[in-house]
């Protein structure tokens, strides 16, 4: 074999190379624009290690971050009936079918029961990936059933909110869910059962104007957008730009609406302590 035979270098297709890198290994922080290693983000409950920005997280992650092991899902078979046969640019029925086919079969809220730090709880978590976690009949019904379940089992009730508001596709029936869920919370209040509202980014519209503001304690994640009218609507109405920090969790705390801004890694410990403070000692 000659010393001087030039070996042909294997050609590596550029495309192939990029494909080998797992998608989304790095992620850009939406607040400080720093690149973060995705694995690192998993250790920090999806909070930017540089600036503390709280990335939105899915229902599963929320459930495992708050609940003790061994919880059960409730009322998972409820489905929207498209009562208004609503059609806009897309038919509501088609939207629902598409989501269902993609595995989103619980509408925009998941209700579970189990324990949190040893205390019996019913926990409802809204799912922003399902039509912006808008509240239609199914969401309202599940939240109401969750409250009734908490009442019957003398468990604390927790709702993790995020929502664009009431679901337009179900019209006034959606509006009525605000009253329905609030009425169920009134029963809990009367029975002396703790209800915690945990507000996450973004909680707006009819959801903010009903159960999300009614907690014995209203707890929010840092910088979460919380408000009745969305900032764009306000800007268009008053024809002024809004100040920095407007409608963020810290703004709401300063204005007396949010009782405490708690970061995600502290949330379970805080809730556990408050539950211990509120719930009767078990014999």
């Amino acid at each position: 074999m000659s010393w001087f035979v030039k070996k042909r270098q294997q050609k590596i297709a550029v495309e192939e190379r990029t494909v080998r890198v797992p998608e989304g290994l790095w992620i850009k922080c939406e607040a400080c624009k720093e690149l973060i290693y995705r694995a690192e983000l998993q250790n920090t409950h999806n909070v930017c290690p540089k600036c503390g920005y709280h990335f939105r997280i899915g229902v599963e992650e929320r459930l495992t971050s708050l609940m003790d092991e061994g919880y059960t899902t409730l009322f998972s078979d409820l489905q929207s009936t498209d009562p208004l046969h609503f059609v806009a640019m897309k038919a509501y029925k088609d939207q629902l079918k598409k989501l269902h086919d993609a595995g989103q079969d619980q509408d925009a809220v998941v209700v579970v029961e189990g324990t949190l730090g040893g205390h019996p709880v019913v926990l409802s978590v809204m799912n922003f990936d399902f039509l912006a976690a808008s509240m239609g009949s199914v969401v309202g019904e599940k939240l109401k059933l969750g409250a009734e379940r908490a009442l019957a089992t003398k468990s604390a009730y927790l709702i993790v909110s995020c929502s664009g508001g009431a679901r337009m596709q179900e019209g006034t029936l959606s509006l009525m869910q605000m009253a329905k869920v609030s009425a169920a919370l009134a029963k809990l209040d009367k029975a002396g059962i703790p209800y915690f509202s945990i507000l996450t980014d973004p909680t707006t519209g009819g959801v903010s104007a009903s159960f999300a503001m009614l907690g014995d304690l209203n707890v929010a994640e840092p910088k979460a957008l919380i408000g009745f009218a969305g900032p764009r609507v306000i800007e268009q109405t008053i024809k002024q730009s809004l100040p920095e920090g407007f409608q963020r969790a810290e703004f709401l705390q300063a204005h007396g609406m949010v009782d405490k801004v708690v970061s995600r890694d502290q949330l379970k410990d805080f809730l556990k302590a408050c539950l211990a403070w509120m719930m009767p000692e078990r014999v």
Binding site: Q253, H255, G256, V258, D259, K260, F270
Partner: peptide
Amino acid sequence: EEIHGDRRFGDDAAIVAGL
């Protein structure tokens, strides 16, 4: 655990309250 706000207008730092 300090708790803030009156759920009406604001959070007055001249009074601290909590669990």
